[in-house]
Design a binder for these strands. Structure first.
Length: 518
DNA sequence: TTCCGACAGTGGGGTCGCAAT
DNA sequence: ATTGCGACCCCACTATCGGAA
């Protein structure tokens, strides 16, 4: 199969807004592939290379050779070329990688170059990712969608399922089971404004502490223990404390889901940045460990000694977890079965915050573990801060935001009458707001640049954020975490905006109470 | 007919390790 | 030593399609 066929399919997927039409086109491409080719085609139409990392990003793709006139690249050939690029390492690697990259792109036609570039950057922007490939795969092979989804969830990836389905048909699906040692995509939570709203959606539920660390999925088979992140990266060697903790548990085969985070000597959580630094440190783990020891707190169990628990209810899975792991290794929780318990849930949430944690996650007691899906069964609730800040500059948007000023540079009022930048945001803006602010900011522009405009600091925006974190990038030494626009405030003047001191107060309060971010 | 769940897109700050300067 | 780059941790929110109610 030629890469050109995949490039054409991708272009047609991008050309329609109808999801059903996208799925049909993906199905057609998969049908035309051999099982071996389907591995690559399924990845590419989901916008991913088969290689986890290639060392190729924006900078490497700025200048490329002119496209080939006629398509000659085979799909499997292109995949092998990326493998060769990914494997380059050591001194002189950049030059060698460059040479291989140029050789690949020189053989690609214009549509093929566009595909390869989008794949390398993870920005194919065709309006379809893995979820639609899974639908297309079910369509192409006449397999029940729910069963294909189940196989993908248990395998932790779509391409191997595509290969098996094309080679053997639906009968292959039964082979895909949870395997201890191979990670599944973790179940994700959506957001609720407050505990009452979350309980209203979830029904009878467990309310769990939300820890501000990194998600860990731990697999144990005897003495063999592996730790995976949310994106299924293997971080076993970086988190020895987690391995040691799980080794103490009384089960031979185990799959656990939880959170790892750095705690201070007082048992309170350290800022997220310290946990992230620990998880990122690979070279000298013992030193990093001595500086910021990690703890693991688990909230779910997916497998125990030969028994899969994915379809068991949240209530049952927790019972199994509680029988295995001591309280100190589990996240705190309360169970709420009716409206009369709402007060207890709110009190629990307040105590979680007082202990320095991020908030709570409300989990429906009757829900199974839906790997890889962001369903309504888990709802996170976090407190939100708001401030009135001033727009200092704005960047031109890309994609569907092309032509609109999108990303706002935010400043707080300084002591000297100037403004101090605290971060940027593009979030929370409706199309109408984008349109309005583009006009408004162009009128305030004092400098036009390729990236956007610098403006007179006059437009006030109400900004929501989760907390204030230490920053080396911004002049006040602080940056907003997860800032988003609530609304424009043209009714306010910049002199009425919040001050840097107000922001610092949030920052200092968080550090004093040990709160993770705010 | 209306509602809402699932998806994709649009980017944010911080951190590490590596290769080049 | 410093810098630029790539990869990954954390992530919020809106628009849209199409099935559910």
């Amino acid at each position: 199969m030629l890469l050109a066929a995949v490039a054409a399919a991708s272009a047609e997927v991008a050309a329609t807004r109808s999801r059903r039409a996208k799925v049909e086109r993906i199905a057609a491409a998969l049908t035309a592939a051999t099982p071996a080719e389907a591995v690559v085609v399924a990845a590419y139409l989901a916008g991913e290379l088969t290689q986890r990392r290639t060392g190729v990003g924006w900078a490497s793709l700025r200048e490329l050779p002119p496209p080939a006139q006629a398509p000659t690249l085979d799909v499997l050939e292109a995949d092998r070329a990326w493998s060769a690029i990914a494997e380059v390492a050591g001194a002189g690697a950049q030059g060698e990688r460059r040479r291989l990259l140029e050789a690949l792109f020189a053989r690609a036609t214009e549509p093929e170059q566009r595909l390869l570039r989008g794949l390398a950057l993870g920005e194919l922007r065709q309006g379809a990712l893995d979820a639609l490939v899974v639908e297309g795969l079910a369509r192409a092979t006449d397999a029940p969608l729910a069963e294909v989804r189940r196989a993908v969830m248990l395998r932790g990836a779509t391409p191997p399922v595509a290969e098996a389905l094309l080679a053997e048909g639906s009968a292959a699906l039964a082979r895909f089971r949870l395997e201890v040692g191979r990670p599944v995509h973790p179940m994700l939570a959506s957001t609720a404004a407050d505990v009452a709203e979350a309980l209203g959606k979830a029904g009878p539920a467990a309310v769990e502490e939300k820890l501000d660390g990194i998600r860990v999925q731990v697999h144990r088979r005897g003495d063999d223990i592996a730790v995976f992140t949310r994106t299924l990266d293997d971080v076993t060697s970086r988190l020895p404390e987690v391995v040691e903790a799980v080794r103490t548990l009384p089960a031979d085969e185990l799959v656990l889901d939880g959170e790892a985070l750095a705690l201070g000597a007082d048992g309170r959580p350290r800022p997220f940045q310290e946990t992230a630094a620990r998880t990122g440190s690979r070279v000298d783990v013992p030193t990093a460990r001595a500086r910021a020891p990690l703890s693991a707190a688990f909230f779910d169990v997916l497998h125990v000694d030969g028994e899969d628990l994915l379809t068991a209810s949240t209530a049952e899975r927790h019972d199994r977890l509680a029988a295995l792991a001591p309280e100190a290794m589990r996240v705190r929780r309360v169970v709420v079965t009716g409206p009369e318990d709402e007060h207890a849930a709110a009190a629990f949430s307040a105590s979680a915050l007082a202990r320095g944690h991020e908030g709570v996650v409300v989990k429906a007691l009757d829900a199974p573990y839906e790997a890889g899906r962001r369903g309504a069964a888990w709802l996170k609730v976090k407190p939100v801060h708001t401030l009135d800040l001033v727009v200092l500059a704005a960047e031109w948007g890309s994609g569907r935001r092309r032509g609109w000023l999108s990303n706002l540079h935010l400043g707080a009022r300084g002591l000297d009458g100037g403004f101090v930048m605290l971060g940027k945001t593009f979030k929370g803006l409706t199309d109408a707001m984008l349109q309005w602010q583009t006009t408004a900011l162009l009128e305030l522009a004092v400098e036009q640049a390729g990236w956007g405009v610098v403006v007179r600091p006059e437009l006030v925006v109400e900004i929501a954020f989760d907390g204030v974190q230490a920053s080396t990038r911004y002049p006040a030494g602080m940056a907003l975490r997860f800032a988003r626009v609530i609304r424009h405030r043209p009714d306010k003047t910049a002199a009425e905006a919040d001050t840097v001191d107000a922001v610092r107060a949030v920052f200092d309060r968080a550090r004093a109470t040990g709160e993770s971010s705010g």
